[in-house]
Write a protein that binds this DNA or RNA. Structure first.
Length: 270
DNA sequence: ATGGCTTTAAAATAAAGA
């Protein structure tokens, strides 16, 4: 199936995801990153603000329109697009009415379906937070199956809080008991791929060793003690159009940086 | 280190993160 990127003249589309760990504290870094790298679409996680605190005007000033799903103090996701307002399709996942965390936002923009996710961390495990993580992944899988059934070009990207393979972490032993790499977490992630979604970075860097997160503690950045937990999953149509992908690693080393680095993919228009 | 940072919320600590 062929498709066109609507409202876009460029022959390729760049889509990025960035867990910014607080949009208020990170606003100068966020604006700087957008202006330097100019993604057509940017999915943000952990905006950590209520809806009314979202810096809509600051983003508009540099050419980005946005939709967002905020929450007081923590969580929160947003989808930004250069010169186009994302059309909201869905916020939140079905299947758990009492779940009030702002972790899922889905939109249509440039002729693509884009879901921005902030998957629960799940620590400590075992425990109720880990149970919530696994339930959330089950609900995500159900929604992704619905999207797949629509046969639209789609990308589900964000902070998955999953280390998919041992080659995606600096030291397996250091993280062995962490919720991010438990077999149940990995199995749930593998099921998404089994359903036909493609992990963009895993495809282009099959040997691993690519990190998207470095802890603030213990000199993790200076020692390159990181792991890969921010992912872009592509529908079959988009997987065929993947030109390039990578991590804006240098942004992790800047003043007042987030503990995550941005991840991006570039897709061919046809 | 059952937490070495960091953010938010809110006024000193506490929760959450990964």
């Amino acid at each position: 199936m062929r498709f066109q990127f609507r409202d876009l003249e460029a022959p390729a589309l760049k889509i990025a995801t960035f867990n910014i760990n607080g949009i208020k504290a990170r606003l100068p870094r966020l604006l700087e990153w957008l202006e330097e790298t100019r993604p057509d679409v940017a999915c943000l996680q952990e905006i950590k603000t209520q809806d009314e605190g979202f810096p809509e005007a600051d983003l508009a000033r540099i050419g980005y329109q946005a939709i967002w799903h905020g929450q007081k103090g923590f969580n929160g996701v947003a989808i930004l697009a250069a010169g186009s307002k994302p059309l909201e399709i869905q916020r939140g996942l079905a299947g758990e009415a009492e779940d009030e965390h702002s972790r899922y936002l889905e939109a249509e923009v440039f002729g693509l379906r884009i879901a921005c996710i902030y998957l629960p961390n799940g620590n400590p495990q075992p425990g109720p937070k880990f149970d919530y993580k696994l339930r959330w992944m089950k609900r995500l899988r159900a929604r992704m199956a619905e999207i797949a059934a629509e046969e639209v070009p789609a990308i589900v990207t964000g902070d998955y809080n999953i280390i998919p393979h041992d080659s995606d972490v600096w030291a397996v032993a250091a993280m062995a008991d962490d919720a991010l790499m438990q077999p149940a977490s990995r199995d749930a992630y593998a099921r998404l791929l089994g359903d036909g979604w493609t992990d963009a970075l895993a495809t282009h860097y099959p040997r691993g060793g690519i990190w998207t997160f470095w802890d603030y503690q213990a000199g993790a950045w200076q020692r390159d003690h990181g792991f890969r937990i921010d992912h872009a999953l592509l529908s079959p149509e988009l997987a065929d159009r993947l030109i390039a992908c990578g991590v804006d690693k240098d942004h992790r080393g800047r003043e007042k940086a987030s503990d995550h680095a941005p991840v991006w993919v570039t897709l061919r228009a046809n």
